[in-house]
């Protein structure tokens, strides 16, 4: 059983996926941050591959990407850093990033190196389903990687079902049509998540965007299998030197 399937089979509810940017806050802190997340009780790690123009992300994540890039982070360096990952990280790891750096690296080489490092899945928000189906799906499948699509409150039922059918691992429900890090009106979000619940989708659903503390996490988990925290954690890491303690403290606040 794959690590992603395993985590949902074992836990099912309240799955906590935490985003961190590779090479942030220091270029060599990728694995220490992942280790701290695992030790603190995160169920899944979403590892961001820094990009100069991350248009589906907000300011906080863009700034962390800029710092990582200034520190010298590249995809080659990242895969170098991830080589010993599976000696210490046992929870699922999903890579999140944008198409351009992946294309320059070579899509197939990227999938091969990701799979070799023990990565479980990919989130590439600017790769639309048409291009995925016609060009890239076969490669992703060949390397046994999951591929996770996003859905939003504006996504029609037909399209949610199509994206669910193309996804594996989980489906990423954006809690409002907004870039990461904004405050949300949770009542509207809850309505949307209830709607998703009624569809009876193939994949478990994780809610992302706007989750930052115990309250937002537990509310999101009422209607989904779990939630994804991004900007709030990156904000917490910013300027900290004791990454393990900061992470422990942050996750404790979320899980209660």
């Amino acid at each position: 059983m794959s690590r992603l399937k395993d985590v949902f089979a074992k836990k099912g509810k309240n799955v906590l996926n935490v985003y961190c940017t590779a090479g942030f806050p220091q270029v060599n802190s990728t694995l220490p941050v992942m280790q701290a997340l695992q030790d603190s009780g995160a169920d899944i790690i979403e590892l961001g591959m820094p990009y100069s123009d991350p248009l589906a992300d907000g300011e906080v994540i863009q700034n962390s990407s800029t710092i990582a890039l200034q520190g010298g982070m590249t995809l080659s360096l990242l895969f170098e850093q991830l080589k010993p990952m599976r000696n210490q990280i046992h929870i699922p790891v999903v890579l999140m990033g944008y198409m351009n750096p992946v294309l320059q690296y070579g899509f197939e080489k990227f999938c091969a190196d990701a799979a070799a490092a023990g990565v479980d899945g990919l989130i590439l928000p600017d790769l639309p389903p048409f291009e995925f189906e016609t060009t890239y799906k076969a490669i992703v499948d060949r390397y046994g990687l999951s591929f996770i699509f996003l859905v939003t409150p504006e996504t029609s039922e037909t399209r949610v079902r199509k994206l669910d059918a193309l996804s594996s691992g989980f489906l990423y429900a954006v809690s409002s049509s907004s870039t990461t890090g904004n405050e949300k009106d949770f009542a509207a979000v809850e309505q949307y998540l209830e709607r998703l619940q009624h569809y009876g989708l193939n994949n478990p659903v994780l809610v992302g965007f706007g989750i930052k503390d115990q309250d937002t996490f537990s509310r999101a988990c009422k209607y989904a299998n779990g939630a994804i925290i991004g900007s709030a954690y990156i904000k917490a890491l910013d300027g900290q030197t004791d990454l393990a303690a900061t992470t422990r403290h942050f996750i404790k606040n979320v899980l209660g």
Partner: peptide, 19 residues
């Protein structure tokens, strides 16, 4: 129909912009 001029073009957008 998909917005391609030869190999260039397309609509590489996140789902949030799809609608």
């Amino acid at each position: 129909e998909q917005g391609y001029y030869g190999e260039f073009g397309g609509a590489y957008i996140p789902e949030m912009l799809y609608r």
